[in-house]
């Protein structure tokens, strides 16, 4: 299954690295990243692929959420299909 991970918060050094290393630790493959910085606000959308060897979804979501809380970032981890169904016919 493919995940969409969105990250929004105050910009600082190492946000992408933090998220990427969580993905690496949990065996989740990053497929695409789009990111922008508006003034000092950081926004990133990451598309990631879960495989048979990936950690369970709950663990991935939990770890990313905790990372977000610790770093003052708002992180959503959601199944890609929710966006496909809402925005594609």
């Amino acid at each position: 299954m493919r995940l969409v991970i969105t990250v929004v918060g105050k910009d600082r050094i190492g946000i992408v690295s933090d998220i990427a290393s969580i993905c690496k630790d949990l065996n989740v493959n990053i497929m695409d990243i789009t990111q922008k910085v508006f003034d000092d606000m950081f926004a990133m959308v990451m598309l990631a692929q879960m495989t048979d060897t990936s950690a369970p979804f709950e663990e991935i979501e939990d770890k990313l959420d905790k990372c977000g809380q610790k770093a003052g970032l708002k992180i959503h981890t959601m199944h890609e299909d929710i966006f496909n169904s809402m925005h594609k016919i």
Partner: peptide, 16 residues
């Protein structure tokens, strides 16, 4: 991949 604006729109719908 879905457009970034669409993704942010969905998240805003849910959060706000």
């Amino acid at each position: 991949m879905v457009e970034i604006n669409d993704i942010l729109e969905t998240i805003s719908m849910i959060d706000n």
